[in-house]
């Protein structure tokens, strides 16, 4: 529930902050995933700061939209979006993946207010969003359900069980997204296990499919609006992205799927993002 919705320029600036958070927390933790969080950063920002109805101070607010990252491993972007949106203080980002911190390597409902369902085992999230959407429809609520998946994740069989059921139940209050960054841990998705053509597959499962440049903020907002306006079927937005987007040496290199930057590499990345580790970690710790 933002009083006024940010415009494209403001959203771009927020996405830059999110990228700075991601690199800083990974540099501190020296553990975690870099590539996916950076490819999600732009549409994730649009989702959290423009699209969804949320009340971060009251995460269980009855009228909230439901969001769920089926790709639990992109916690750096999830936690950054949550903290920047006001779910918890930014300083927690500096305890990412530590024993003392609240931010587990993969999302944990018990420890973080606002995480509604734990995730980390791929392929499970879309089904959860289907369940929430069914419940909201049963209650005649205007709440919507959002689920973020990965393209490699499409290799999991349960995804297609869920896709089939969402189409069958005609859940137009469900908007799913795939971060199509074309990379997974072992290499390019095309080589490991081909998932394309995703648009054809989802259309065949009775979805409305929207193809979108996942780094074009204007296009992202338009895609969400189109999904919202679609009636009678669930919407799938295929966000075409670049793994590691925003950090030149990470872009399009699958080796950065599950690896954090070393401190000297992080400094290079943060310089490209217009800050430094000292400056940005101080900002996080102060808030």
């Amino acid at each position: 529930m933002l009083a006024t919705k940010p415009d494209v320029t403001e959203l771009k600036a927020k996405a830059l902050d999110i990228r700075r958070d991601i690199i800083t927390m990974l540099a501190k933790s020296q553990s975690g995933h870099s590539g996916g969080p950076l490819s999600v950063a732009d549409f994730g920002t649009a989702l959290f700061f423009h699209e969804m109805e949320l009340d971060p101070k009251n995460p269980k607010w009855d009228g909230r939209d439901f969001w769920h990252f089926s790709i639990g491993h992109v916690t750096p972007v999830i936690y950054s979006l949550m903290a920047e949106r006001g779910y918890f203080p930014l300083k927690h980002l500096m305890g990412f993946r530590s024993f003392e911190g609240i931010l587990q390597g993969h999302p944990c409902r018990k420890e973080v207010p606002g995480i509604e369902v734990s995730s980390g085992s791929l392929g499970q999230g879309l089904s959860v969003a289907v369940g929430f959407a069914l419940g909201a429809r049963l209650d005649k609520s205007s709440q919507r359900a959002y689920c973020v998946m990965g393209d490699g994740e499409q290799q999991e069989g349960q995804v297609w069980e869920a896709a089939m059921s969402a189409g069958h139940f005609e859940l137009d209050n469900l908007c799913a997204m795939i971060d199509v960054n074309r990379m997974q841990i072992d290499g390019p998705t095309e080589k490991i296990m081909r998932v394309e053509p995703l648009a054809d597959k989802y259309r065949a499962f009775h979805w409305h499919v929207i193809d979108c440049d996942g780094h074009d903020m204007q296009a992202i907002l338009k895609a969400f609006a189109e999904a919202r306006a679609t009636k009678g079927k669930p919407s799938m937005i295929l966000f075409r992205t670049t793994m590691g987007e925003g950090v030149s040496y990470m872009e399009d290199d699958y080796k950065w799927h599950g690896m954090p930057p070393k401190m000297d590499q992080a400094e290079v990345a943060l310089k490209e993002l217009g800050t430094s580790y000292a400056e940005w970690s101080a900002r996080l710790l102060a808030n």
Binding site: F66, E116, V117, G123, Q124, G125, S127, V128, A129, V130, G131, F132, A133, L134, G135, A136, L138, D139, Q143, A145, G157, Q158, E161, A162, M164, S165, H168
Partner: peptide, 18 residues
């Protein structure tokens, strides 16, 4: 939910969150 027990289990999860 048809013959898809994994999906059904997590649909139940989503309903419980609602």
């Amino acid at each position: 939910c048809g013959i898809a027990e994994q999906n059904m289990t997590n649909i139940a999860a989503g309903l419980s969150v609602r």
